[in-house]
Nucleic acid binder design. Sequence first.
DNA 1: GACAAGCCTGCACGCGTGTGCAGACTTGCA
DNA 2: TGCAAGTCTGCACACGCGTGCAGGCTTGTC
Lengths: 342, 342
Amino acid sequence: MSTASRSDAGRRVRATDVAELAGVSRSAVSRAFSQTAYIAPETKARVLKAAAELDYSPDTLASSLAKGRSNIVVVVINQVDAIRGPSLHSALIRSLQDSGRLPVVLSLSPTDDGATSLKRHLTFPVEGLIVMSDSVSVEVARHAVPYVRPIMLNFERTSADVDSIVANDAAGIAEMVNHLWDTGHRSVGFMAGRSSSFSSTMRWNALALEIARKGMNLAVEANGEFTYDQAYEAAPALVAGEKLPDAIFCANDVMAFAVMDYLRLNTQHRVPEDVSIVGFDDVFMASWPIYNLSTIRQDIDSMAAAVIAILEHRRDPQTRKFDPPTMVAELVLRGTIGRRTQ
Amino acid sequence: MSTASRSDAGRRVRATDVAELAGVSRSAVSRAFSQTAYIAPETKARVLKAAAELDYSPDTLASSLAKGRSNIVVVVINQVDAIRGPSLHSALIRSLQDSGRLPVVLSLSPTDDGATSLKRHLTFPVEGLIVMSDSVSVEVARHAVPYVRPIMLNFERTSADVDSIVANDAAGIAEMVNHLWDTGHRSVGFMAGRSSSFSSTMRWNALALEIARKGMNLAVEANGEFTYDQAYEAAPALVAGEKLPDAIFCANDVMAFAVMDYLRLNTQHRVPEDVSIVGFDDVFMASWPIYNLSTIRQDIDSMAAAVIAILEHRRDPQTRKFDPPTMVAELVLRGTIGRRTQ
DNA sequence: GACAAGCCTGCACGCGTGTGCAGACTTGCA
DNA sequence: TGCAAGTCTGCACACGCGTGCAGGCTTGTC
């Protein structure tokens, strides 16, 4: 159609073009796309019609510049998140773009603490900085964008300089320990994650607390650094004792897979008849029949929603008051928890 | 330190601030950061020193506006890419940001062809549009950003209106078929991917060609739609005949896992003693001991490099001539291919 | 018919940066 | 010392858009 061929030409359509076609001034075009500005209904209609014909929409970046308010949100991720990350990552991206923001992804190599790379790449005004990588410290995040409070995901709530969104892992773990207790489990082993990671220590603390509260026995522990390979290496230690723990609690799903694979390939122990396995995250492989893993799912949608809520609150602190969504950790009970009778 | 506290204050540092501190005009600051502009060495040094002190770098977006040349590259992804995607996705993001560009991620829901959502979100000038989702058609991509040629990854090279980067799957498949032939395989089954996907048909065609060329027998085929669940459902059809195929070739790794799991959980057939399994992509689980999958790895780095090469070429068509990197598909031989004797 | 009030529009400036252009200053040479 | 050539800098405008402000027009009322 002619409309298409016209707009297919070299460059973007500007407000001036629309103004010309609609027979109004450029400011009228700007006002037609503004929620608050003063404009006659029929003028607005004429402008919007012309805009639709030319396939025009305001350049949000030039707009940001003019308004002095960026709508770019930078999401810092880490290659390590490749397994667990995708769901939270894409939920976050989706939420941001659906709220009219522009998600810019900054990918750090696993060993990069971001001290220099963040500064080098963040050469534009941002509305928010979201850190999903636990290799980035609060100080680095603060320093990278001095004029904005970073939002750290699953990070220790230590600093007053950042907003921190933490999944309610403790609640999920408490619930899971309850379930293990009810199904007769009395001794558990624990496969920890990277000790420098807050998620790992948070999960460890919660588990230790709940186990003590129940009077259960933390029989044995090992460290799998959150990776399959390390967990596979560490798995023997968990089952080397003369008595198997009733259940093995893994700080994430991937390590649970490693333990299961180790047991399956190298021992006679059966899951869940001889030992129960519990994971954390509910990654997509957890539902595969070969694993069928009982695990705990973080409330990803609520976390994404919390990010948006914080950003909205900042835009308009007085009217829009901030009440953080409550995070719910969901038990996903599949086939790796058996029944024990003492 | 005092420098930090000064720049920690409310807003971004502007060129004017640097100019003031260095005792020069604002244009001098701009020129100090330009590669081509004319500026006295010692002036440049003084400006850069002041800039470093204030922690200044030019606002790349305002710069884009002034230069009329955006450095934003939009990457369109799909939730479906969650398994295979991460490696290519993060390689691409990394390459883009390392080349000084700004990667903006646009995530489509699996059923979205992008017709409206792309237009709604692409409200700013972009340097490039990279489509990784095969749910987006050439027409939609073309129309979404009329003034720029989309770069489609692993898409059929049908249209002259787009640049297309296609991995050399055929070469990898030829090599793999060679290897299967050499190890005595004579009949193969094929688990296809989503029929609407170019990757799937490309792989199917390549396999059919090579098999015919060798005089091997394409014994049976099924369609797993590239997903674990569908492949698990379709797996029985591949082994239902009275004679097992010597090898089963899967159009991606995840379906290979599904087939292996089906065999392990529901049949007596052993891999690779009774049947060999071949995947495609070399996702991270392929190296897990439970799978230890022999597969074919796409040349991800070259694909990312090709994207950058195209973008660089467009910036400067006359001097920088475009020679596309050659893609190499790499055989990753692990433990799922046995030896057959007829 | 005159005037006031209110609705609406265009003008003009600003957001932070790049860059052509003119002119100032330096340098070299006669 | 005078002049030309060359080197560098600042001015001013532009990029596309938002918005305060003044003024024009319409409408209603007396």
